[in-house]
Computed example of a mutant assay.
Amino acid sequence: MSAEAAAPSGPVQSIGRALGLLEHLADAGQPLGLSELAALCRIPVSTTHRMLGGLCQAGYLYKGSDRRYRLGPRLVALGGAAMLPIAPDVSTWLARLVEATGETANAATLCGDTVLFVAQVQSSQAMRSSTEVHRRTMAHCSAVGKALLSLLADDEVTALASRTGLARSTSHTVGSVSELVAAVRVVRRQGFALDDEEEEYGARCVAVPVPSAPFPLAVSVAGPSARVTRERVPALAAELHRVIS
């Protein structure tokens, strides 16, 4: 089958393009204009304009007086509906983790090939780990990412890594697909994932998957490596399991 024959077309292509517009706006973190979105999505300006109009009419986007587009209120309702089955549990888990460990607690899910942070409760300590809710990160270099990958089969982990690549954030980041698969197997065996200064120097994070969640979900505690020492990791992992059980 040729590449042209295999390429999505018709309604499937339109859905993909519409979702692409939403994704690019979310990733940008700021309003974008028509030409900017057309360039990012690599689709004609006329097609982009038509699709943006439909998304605005449905409430998924909002066009401001500056003629730039923003994510619309309909997405808030969809996001809330997606989190509804587990949102009360997540809020309780994170609050308890911060109280028990003194470190920042996060919840994240696998969104496509990347990790999306969906909730956070920050530590009250002056020196603390912090990330933006709705920020995305790569799965291979984060504890929550490796915890989420542990829910996949080895061939799925390999395929994901082949699509995204394995960019090194620090000298500790895994550098090959075989190394990543081996690390994920360790997570499955020991029941928790560790980011040992793999995403950022001076920071360490422990995460566990939540098998009972209705979608891929992991929770974590993170903090400065001076406080989140390697010796402390087993106790933090045990606390994570205790809280979500």
Rank of each mutant, 00 (worst) to 15 (best):
E4D: 12
A5I: 11
A5K: 14
A6R: 14
A6T: 12
S9V: 13
S9Q: 08
Q13S: 14
R17N: 05
L19V: 14
G20H: 02
L22E: 00
E23I: 15
E23V: 11
E23Q: 14
A28L: 08
G29A: 09
G29M: 07
Q30C: 04
S35H: 10
A39C: 02
I43W: 09
S46N: 12
T47M: 12
T47C: 03
T48L: 02
R50E: 05
R50L: 12
M51P: 00
G53R: 04
G53E: 06
G54P: 01
C56H: 05
Q57D: 10
Y60W: 07
Y60N: 02
K63H: 09
G64S: 01
G64N: 03
D66A: 11
R67K: 14
R68W: 05
R68Q: 08
G72A: 00
P73W: 11
R74A: 14
V76H: 11
V76F: 08
G80C: 12
M83Y: 09
L84Q: 13
I86E: 09
A87R: 15
A87M: 11
A87Q: 10
D89A: 13
D89C: 10
D89W: 06
L94Y: 00
L94C: 03
A95S: 12
R96S: 05
E99K: 05
A100G: 06
T101I: 01
T101K: 02
G102M: 04
G102H: 11
E103P: 12
A107P: 04
A107V: 08
A108C: 04
T109E: 00
L110G: 02
L110T: 06
T114A: 10
V115L: 13
L116C: 08
V118H: 01
A119N: 06
A119R: 05
V121S: 07
Q122Y: 09
S124E: 13
R128H: 11
S129P: 00
S129Y: 14
S129V: 01
T131V: 05
M138Y: 14
A139I: 04
S142Y: 04
S142V: 05
A143S: 13
A143D: 07
V144M: 05
L149H: 00
L151G: 00
L152F: 13
D154L: 01
D155P: 01
T158Y: 04
A159Q: 10
A159C: 01
A159F: 06
T164A: 00
L166F: 03
S169P: 07
S169C: 15
T173H: 03
V174D: 09
V174H: 15
E179L: 10
V181T: 14
V181I: 15
V184L: 08
R185T: 07
Q190D: 15
A193F: 07
L194F: 07
E199Y: 09
Y201K: 10
Y201T: 15
Y201F: 08
R204K: 05
C205V: 09
C205T: 11
P209V: 08
P209T: 07
V210M: 02
P214I: 15
P216W: 06
A218F: 00
V221I: 10
A222I: 03
A226H: 07
R227C: 06
R227M: 11
R232V: 12
R232S: 11
P234F: 03
E239K: 13
E239H: 06
H241Q: 12
V243E: 01
I244F: 01
S245G: 12
